[in-house]
Amino acid sequence: MTRAALLLLADGRFPAGGHAHSGGAEAAVRAGLITDAASLEEFCRGRLHTSGLVAASLAAAAALGVDPGDLDAAADARTPSPALRAAARRLGRQLLRAARATWPCAGLDLLARRFPKGAHQPVVLGAVAQAAGLEPLDAAYCAAYESVGGPATATVRLLGLDPFDATGVLARLAPATDRVADRAVRAAREALDTGVDALPAASAPLLEISAEVHAARTGRLFAT
């Protein structure tokens, strides 16, 4: 394996469709919940410990070899918003396309055949990490970091937030990101032994509700 593959996979420029999504930040900005760096940090911290933790656990479990069909169903059960479920599958499909061209292998071809319309993005992310020779912890880091990196980048565009303030937010969240990734891997190992019910189901109701409001809104900049 090469750890450098993690840099490629976690890079926001990896061409897998993430740039069109704000991770709920646009809806939060519109609702007046994110107005500056401090409120962005609170938003990201909440997201990291809820949907970020769930995504990291799914990714780690997929990288460990837990059945992707079981994981995709587990992701559905943990994503009440139909708009977010649809977006997660679209992003999963886009990631799989990019990854199959980047790290061609039979395992990813099989996944594409099994989920022609896409599996939840974190599930695909775990499988891709495995195909790239990475560890479950790497997959968990990738998912956890994405859960806050996306909203931070989007907020720079939405609010004209100072980009240095946004990177400062992400740096301050690094210790929490470490803990989330560790916890995700522990849960994934348990899921390997006892089934996907062992995975965290931390929910952020406001993210789910505002995603539905956002999906119905015209004049939005980001898809989610």
Binding site: P15, A16, G17, H19, A20, R90, Q94, L95, R97, A98
Partner: peptide, 12 residues
């Protein structure tokens, strides 16, 4: 970005 750097959504 959508037509040059990350074309995945357009390809789909």
């Amino acid at each position: 970005t959508a037509i040059r750097d990350d074309i995945s959504a357009n390809l789909e």
